[in-house]
């Protein structure tokens, strides 16, 4: 089997958008609380101002990076190994031999569930690595494939 490179489903971009919105909301709440510390406990005024700047900048950066993040997040499976890649400015690649895979976990938070996506985590005896979101049937197929290959390649070591 030739290794094929897969991208994440395009809808993951929407999830990332919503999660940027989520960080915006969380940061607004934190800024509000810091504003209260300024009003009632006379903390320094620059603390809420710094927080406000962060509240504006962080979600913008997060949203702006979505196309980049999507473009460079990839995974591939061959008979021997799973490989995951992310990032271009900071390129990361991880190789996980299928014989080392202990388990594959699918889990989805409310946002992913709503979009019918799921996060896939591949765990070895030492580390675990995640693919941020896959279509549900695709994820199940991924899991079946890895577990089948793992059963074939299994030499009990850990």
């Amino acid at each position: 089997m030739q290794p094929t490179t897969h991208h994440l489903p395009p809808r993951i971009k929407r999830i990332w958008g919503y999660s940027a919105l989520g960080s915006l909301l969380a940061l607004i709440v934190i800024t509000g609380l810091l504003q209260l510390t300024y009003l009632y406990w006379n903390w320094a005024v620059w603390i809420p101002i710094a927080s406000l700047v962060l509240t504006i900048v962080e979600p913008i950066v997060e949203v702006a990076l979505i196309p980049y993040r999507y473009q460079f997040t990839r995974y591939q499976i061959s008979d021997l190994a799973v490989e995951m890649q992310a990032g271009f400015i900071f390129q990361k690649r991880v190789a996980i031999p299928i014989a080392r895979v202990q388990n594959v976990t699918l889990n989805a938070g409310p946002l992913l569930q709503w979009q019918k996506l799921t996060k896939v985590t591949v765990a070895t005896a030492a580390t675990s690595h995640s693919i941020e979101g896959l279509e549900l049937p695709e994820a199940e197929q991924f899991r079946e494939q890895i577990m089948r290959l793992a059963r074939e390649a299994r030499h009990d070591n850990a």
């Binding site: 390129q91 031999p97 080392r100 580390t127």
Partner: peptide, 27 residues
């Protein structure tokens, strides 16, 4: 066969300097 996974990392600046980070994960 005791290496659980391996990471390869490189930033674009390191492309110019021909360097990279390599991480070997062991239980």
């Amino acid at each position: 066969d005791k290496i659980q996974s391996m990471n390869f990392q490189q930033s674009i600046w390191m492309k110019k300097t021909q360097l990279a980070h390599l991480t070997v994960n062991v239980r």
